[in-house]
């Protein structure tokens, strides 16, 4: 069983759940719920980015010698998503529904095409390249998550 990809794909789905609940709350003007939900969504997603950036990507780069390839692009897309997070937080603070929903539509596309590339290309490559270290890596990622 390819556990690195399974572990990280499950995380994507967890973040999707939080994203959808938050967007729905914002669309019906439930701002207290939306702000709270957005906070949880943002923390979960940040924690996931950190697992990748601090554990998975360096291990992948070490094992394959590819440091200017997929991981570089994934880091850049993390940066793009973080910028949208800041704008969404500001829109939620102002309770600006049009702005929030426009940004959330944008984030969904950005996030989903990003996840797709990870789940269908990068994670399977990582499963192969890092087969010997999966227990250790998943352990490190879990430790990072519980520490956060």
């Amino acid at each position: 069983m390819s556990r690195i990809s399974q572990y990280l794909t499950d995380e994507h789905h967890h973040c999707d759940d939080l994203f959808a609940q938050t967007e729905e709350a914002a669309s019906r003007g439930g701002w207290a719920e939306a702000k709270d939900g957005f906070g949880r969504f943002r923390r979960s997603t940040e924690a996931h980015f950190e697992m990748e950036e601090k554990v998975l990507f360096p291990a992948f780069e070490n094992a394959t010698g590819i440091s200017l390839g997929p991981t570089q692009v994934m880091r850049m897309e993390h940066r793009q998503m973080r910028e949208v997070f800041s704008q969404m937080a500001a829109a939620a603070q102002r309770q600006d529904a049009d702005e929030y929903l426009g940004l959330s539509e944008t984030l969904l596309m950005l996030m989903q095409q990003h996840n797709l590339k990870e789940e269908q290309i990068l994670y399977p490559m990582a499963d192969q390249a890092l087969a010997g270290q999966r227990e250790t890596l998943i352990g490190s990622m879990q430790a990072l998550a519980s520490g956060a």
Partner: peptide
């Protein structure tokens, strides 16, 4: 095996 040419080239 890792395809060497894979660069995740953007759109």
């Amino acid at each position: 095996m890792i395809p060497a040419g894979l660069s995740f080239e953007q759109a």
